[in-house]
């Protein structure tokens, strides 16, 4: 009798000791799911407008607290990360910034290392945009 050793969703997070891109992949998926969840909440919230101005005002008052402000900031972070990392994935999936097939000599330089300058650059962009969001949400 064989033992099923497929890792399942936990394999996304605790799969092993790999390079950073594997964790960016997981963050990309989680941020994508978070954005879909936000979109559904957003649609439900805005639908209260149909019920008239008092209901809409009450709904707006409900989401104006600090808890929802932090939530909106996290949505902003998820959106920024998902967009910029998505741009990195599109560039790579079109075959750019990953090098070309060549004879491999140890120590090997796989495509994941070749795309790393692009990854660092775009993650700096993410950090800069998140910093701007912090100023916009909490300081200004």
């Amino acid at each position: 009798m064989r033992y099923n050793n497929r890792l399942g969703a936990k394999g996304w997070v605790i799969g092993g000791n790999y390079s950073i891109e594997r964790y960016l992949y997981i963050l990309h998926r989680v941020s994508g799911l978070a954005l879909i969840f936000y979109l559904m909440c957003h649609l439900i919230l805005t639908s209260f407008r149909i019920a008239g101005a008092p209901t809409w005002e009450a709904a707006m008052a409900f989401v104006s607290g600090p808890f929802f402000k932090v939530g909106e900031f996290l949505v902003m972070c998820a959106g920024v990360y998902h967009a910029i990392n998505g741009l990195r994935l599109i560039i790579i999936e079109l075959g750019y910034c990953i090098g070309k097939p060549e004879r491999q000599e140890y120590p090997y330089t796989p495509s994941i290392k070749k795309q790393r300058p692009l990854m660092y650059l775009l993650m700096l962009v993410v950090a800069a945009l998140v910093a701007v969001s912090v100023v916009d949400f909490f300081i200004m």
Binding site: G15, G16, Y18, E21, R22, L24, Y108
Partner: peptide
């Protein structure tokens, strides 16, 4: 979705 772990582990 280009996690790159396959190339990392090969």
């Amino acid at each position: 979705h280009m996690a790159g772990a396959c190339s990392d582990a090969c």
